[in-house]
Structures are given as structure tokens and as C-alpha cells.
Amino acid sequence: MGKMRIGILVGVGLILSMPAIGKEALTDAQVRQQIIRESLSSYPGNCACPYSTMSNGRSCGGRSAYSKPGGRSPICYDRDINDAQVQAFRKRLGG
């Protein structure tokens, strides 16, 4: 019984210390898309970005928060995200 416990503990330790099997590293493009998704999910209204749609189904365009100076600044496009933000996101995820 003692050897079995030690074996289980060693096995669990090895599993926890290994990188996740099947967990692929995200590309920079995937990280940028995730940052955009998080930004948009935290926006309370319908018109975060110019390409968002209003409740009547029309495009928000210039009515979007992104298009208006001041106030909220949602991240809508890849070009809005610099390399430092990508690295900070990776660091936050632990990778």
C-alpha cells in the first residue's frame, strides 16, 4: 500500500509538471482574436464596434463606441492590439 501511494504521488507530480498534452500554443492571431472577444464581451451595449449590429439589424457604423472619442474604447480590430498586449495576454494565461 505504501509503494502504491508513492507511485500515485509521483505519477500525479509528473503529470502536473508536464505541459498540457494536446494544448497547442496560440498563435499571435489567435491571441489577438481572444483579446477582441474579451473586450467585446465586457461591453454592455450592442454597438461596441462599427461592424456590430443594432437591435434593428443595421450596422452600428459611426454610432459605435469605437467610432466616438472619449468614453469606452472597445478593441475591435487586430490592428488595435500591439505586441506588448499579446505578450501580456500570454503571461496572464501562464504561457
Rank of each mutant, 00 (worst) to 15 (best):
Y77R: 10
S52F: 03
R58Q: 08
P50C: 01
D80C: 00
D78I: 15
A65L: 06
C47P: 06
R63E: 08
Q33Y: 09
K68T: 10
Y66L: 02
P50Y: 00
M54F: 12
E38H: 09
D78E: 15
D78G: 11
M54A: 14
I36E: 13
G70V: 08
D28G: 12
S52K: 05
N56M: 08
R58T: 11
Q34H: 11
D80E: 00
C60Q: 07
S59P: 00
A48Y: 08
G70Y: 04
R79L: 07
S73K: 14
S41V: 14
P50N: 05
Y66P: 03
G57Q: 02
R72S: 15
Q33K: 14
S55R: 10
C60N: 03
Q34A: 14
I75S: 03
I36S: 10
A29F: 01
C76S: 05
P69V: 15
S67R: 04
T53A: 02
A29Q: 14
S39R: 13
I75R: 01
S59E: 05
N46V: 09
Y66F: 03
S67H: 00
S41Y: 13
A29P: 08
S67C: 05
S64D: 04
R37Y: 09
I75D: 03
C60K: 04
R32W: 04
Q33A: 14
N46Y: 13
C60G: 04
G61D: 07
P69F: 13
L40Q: 09
C47D: 01
S42E: 09
C60S: 09
C47F: 01
I36N: 10
R72C: 12
R37C: 04
